[in-house]
Design a protein around this nucleic acid. Structure first.
Length: 111
DNA sequence: GCCATGACGGAGC
DNA sequence: TGCTCCGCCATGG
């Protein structure tokens, strides 16, 4: 058991057709600034867990590529597109539109 | 037990 | 606008 459970729980709450950033998940999991830990946690659990890991992307709205993924990043994009998430020509997601807004009461200056 | 790396993020240049 | 560097901390050698 570890703080990762909180991460998994947060990721599981991401609704279909929406995405969340690593930093956002980390914050919601009570781990502000530990975005890397979120990626690490997902990396370890992804294959077996029933967690929508594909709904977690980086702050740029892109799917993070890494040597350890070998190409599963492309699979992630397919899964997101299957949920209705549209990728731009740059291969990025419009976070403005698809970013999951969890229990955020109000943001001054954004609305 | 120490060193290097990493599904990231934000600030600096 | 784009790239680089630093910080955070768990995991692996």
């Amino acid at each position: 058991m570890s703080s990762y459970d909180a991460i998994y729980d947060v990721v599981r709450q991401i609704p279909r057709g929406q995405v969340a950033t690593y930093g956002q998940v980390a914050d919601l999991a009570n781990l502000p600034g530990r975005a890397r830990l979120v990626g690490y946690a997902l990396y370890r659990v992804a294959p077996d867990a029933d967690i929508p890991w594909h709904r977690v992307i980086n702050a740029r709205g892109e799917i993070s590529e890494s040597p350890v993924r070998f190409g599963s990043d492309h699979f992630q994009r397919v899964l997101l597109e299957a949920e209705g998430v549209i990728f731009s020509a740059h291969g990025k997601v419009n976070l403005r539109e698809y970013r999951w807004q969890a229990e955020i009461p109000l943001e001054p200056g954004d609305a």
